[in-house]
Amino acid sequence: MNNIDAWVWWLVGAAALGIPLVVTAMPEFGMFAVGAVAAAAVAGFGFGVVVQVLTFVVVSVALIAVVRPIAARHGKQRPELATGVDALKGKQAVVLERVDGAGGRIKLAGEIWSARALDADHVYEAGEQVDVVDIEGATAVVM
């Protein structure tokens, strides 16, 4: 097998590694595919099989060692921008109708919401400021 054939086989290997990357969504296959492309480049420059395999191994391992921890760190981060009902938690609201453990009404973010007190024994009268601690369905839980 001559050098031209070697680089072609490495590219075929890279394409073959790309298939499970797409099917399984495991990024490691993509890193192996990049290692195979690097080995194809080395083969194209005329280096021997040992150098090609070493290039494949070194590039693949380096990518896994560097990229995986970065990806894991980004995967664990929570989004900085809260949206939907999550954005309402922690906001202040004004009591429109008496709020107790059974229910009531508040004005939250310019809208009228049904609400109930977090502490069932506590009562909030109209005009008081309350803090939204949770949203359960269409009801704000306040304190």
Results as ranks from 00 to 15, higher is better:
L11K: 01
V123F: 08
A72P: 03
V94H: 09
F29H: 10
D121G: 13
Q77R: 15
V49K: 05
Q129P: 07
V51T: 04
D134W: 14
V95N: 13
W9L: 05
G44V: 01
A115I: 04
A41I: 01
K89P: 15
M143R: 14
A87N: 11
L108V: 07
V37D: 02
D5W: 03
G101N: 09
V51N: 08
A117C: 12
V67D: 00
D121I: 00
V22W: 09
E28D: 08
L118A: 14
H122M: 09
V94A: 13
E28N: 12
A25C: 09
N3K: 10
N2D: 10
V94W: 12
L81Q: 11
R68Q: 04
E125N: 11
M1R: 01
A109F: 05
V95L: 12
F56H: 05
G18H: 03
G46K: 10
A14W: 05
G13I: 00
P20E: 02
R105K: 15
V141R: 15
A62Y: 00
L118N: 13
F47Q: 02
V12H: 03
V22E: 06
G101K: 13
G46S: 03
A16W: 08
A120C: 06
A62G: 06
S114E: 15
Y124K: 05
W7Y: 05
G104D: 06
A38H: 05
S60C: 00
L63M: 07
L88I: 04
G137E: 05
I106P: 08
M26E: 13
Q92T: 13
A120P: 15
A109W: 06
W113F: 13
D119R: 12
P79L: 12
L21G: 07
E125F: 07
A72R: 11
A117P: 09
A16R: 09
A16C: 12
V67Q: 00
W7R: 00
R68I: 02
E136N: 10
V133T: 04
K91V: 06
D131S: 13
G101C: 10
T24Q: 08
